[in-house]
Design a protein around this nucleic acid. Sequence first.
DNA 1: TAGAAAGACTATACCGGTTTAGTTTCCCCC
DNA 2: GGGGGAAACTAAACCGGTATAGTCTTTCTA
Lengths: 370, 370
Amino acid sequence: MPANIPATTTVKPTAQSTTKSTAKSAAKSVANPPKVTIEVVAKRAGVSKGLVSFALNNRPGVAPETRVRILQVAKELGWKPSLRARSLSTQRSYALGLVIARNPDVLASDPFFPSFIAGVESILAPEGRALVLSVVPDEETELKTYRSLVADGRVDGVFLSDLRHGDPRIPLLAELGLPAVTLGRPDGPSPFPAVTVDDTPGVMASVAHLATLGHRRIAHVAGSSTLLHGSRRRAAFAAALREAGLPEGQTVETDFSVGAGSDATRRLLTQDTPPTAIVYANDPMAIAGLGMAHELGVRVPDDLSITGYDDIDFCRYVYPPLTTVSAAPMAWGRAAASTLLALMENGSADDVDLPAARLVVRGSTAPPHG
Amino acid sequence: MPANIPATTTVKPTAQSTTKSTAKSAAKSVANPPKVTIEVVAKRAGVSKGLVSFALNNRPGVAPETRVRILQVAKELGWKPSLRARSLSTQRSYALGLVIARNPDVLASDPFFPSFIAGVESILAPEGRALVLSVVPDEETELKTYRSLVADGRVDGVFLSDLRHGDPRIPLLAELGLPAVTLGRPDGPSPFPAVTVDDTPGVMASVAHLATLGHRRIAHVAGSSTLLHGSRRRAAFAAALREAGLPEGQTVETDFSVGAGSDATRRLLTQDTPPTAIVYANDPMAIAGLGMAHELGVRVPDDLSITGYDDIDFCRYVYPPLTTVSAAPMAWGRAAASTLLALMENGSADDVDLPAARLVVRGSTAPPHG
DNA sequence: TAGAAAGACTATACCGGTTTAGTTTCCCCC
DNA sequence: GGGGGAAACTAAACCGGTATAGTCTTTCTA
């Protein structure tokens, strides 16, 4: 039953022809194995349940032979301590949380999270931890979600992705006392360890690559500047231009969505003096840009060079294949998970800097014709 | 702490240069609010805790005025029943599970799950349920994951996606007594309700559309035939050809991945008599096919028409925009979640048939040039 | 008007672990 | 050989709810 339901109309037996009946009843009543609890193990081993608990948790004060015997009995009986009981007494849930606040469209076209999550899982699963995922539509709901995750004790720690400027989640989580790991370094003070893949070098390398090819009018289709990585990539873009001795480039801000990337591209290319190269803040937008270029009859890479960011699978298979920057979301997930576990175990954890994202040159970049 | 940890060093300050310190200590010690439990509410309302529980759960046997008073007190004190305690005594977790067994690459390029999950969440969140997500690399791990989800009591029910022929998960879950909902109708007997978006009409419509345009050599890049929707779309393709009075078409089986889609396309197009149209089993492969066509100098849609399946965001923005079949993963997620909740509440739930996927005609299909 | 039945509520067992406060036993040492 | 202390273990409280059995009124019934 839901938390405290006024009208539990949740589900009323639709009186229709219900050929289906749940598997529960059938299956559960058959075997009905005599639940083995810590009590049973204790009795069988001839000790108190407290001692079984001690033995299980490797605590001092248990004679070596006794410990062995207890564990032996536990194994024989196939006993696994009840997560629920343990949760109640330890006040922990043995689960970690990830809250994603994104427009479903943007989320859907962005392959970051599936890979990231796969990485996270590869660490959590062997540790017996679960991942609780929330996908919420807006920031307000997001904060509420964190509050209720804590209130319900659903998770022992969370991953903080898509950092924003002056991110309100950081003080919130600090106040709630919920351990967290940030994906990237926040711009303000933070009590949490950061696991970072520096994206600046990758973006700068993209620009440098284009400059070396001879491009002088390079534009940037940036992501949302409220997002830290959005504005950071934008800053890296600007810095790289300066470094290359090029004039300031045009920048169009978007929300990272495919549609916005397409629109931005149209705007850039339909000017009197369009850029000869565009650096996109992510791959989906770059791919949309490629489509738009085709539509406008602008040839890539002959008339226009483009670069993306993320190196999603698609990049290799669009035509021409996309020059992009390769982050490693799966490794990122692994590192973030390890760090969060360490933080929870030790009460502190060091920041982790993963290898910076690298430029991968493919066919979408070439010297400008002129 | 892991399941059974050697040293219960829960939280010791690692003596390293720890500029970070966990937020826990700091935050928690400040306020330290005197935990409000059911006991406190009971005392304050001058009743027993049992009665508070009854009032909360809308059970008979509580005088109306008393109920009101209790709930009033509960609200004043800001009491929310402890999920953990409740879990222990009700033997439920108030969470639902989704286990995804996919190659991370395939998963990453497939926007189905993010959208589906967003739909699921929109139903679960208001009900106070959480979603536990597992991403596993292979089938063996997948089955193990279900077992341990049940053993740990992590979830009260699960979503079964990517149905396979003679899917082993169905008997397993039945045996485990875990309520489930299948996404689509399984091919064997199943005790579980199915929530279905029929994909056959969409695929048939694609073929019909191509046939109407005048195509006679239509090929199919199919998904894995171990997957039900893979082989079903393939069957629909074949049926549609027959219905249109066309000869059997070439079919290449893939694993649904972008790379495989690309390879399959190359193989098809480099034959002596290549097809004039290709029906892809999903959009990512179609997009890869588009790229390959470009690479081979095959113009779309002039020399080759292509169609996809799913109507992912990209379709509108590649060039030419992709004719595809629009499923509605978010609505699917909502329906699946509602059905699973209903099943758990009532012990049974009816199958749900969502509106069949529809063909969306865009620029990637045109009459074959003669 | 006794007696049964219903209604409101309490006391308490229970879920299955962890943890603290004792208790026993054994050993060491002066 | 008696006191001190550590080691090994037990008993019971505790986490915070739910559920069951039972108590005490009040009301309906025969």
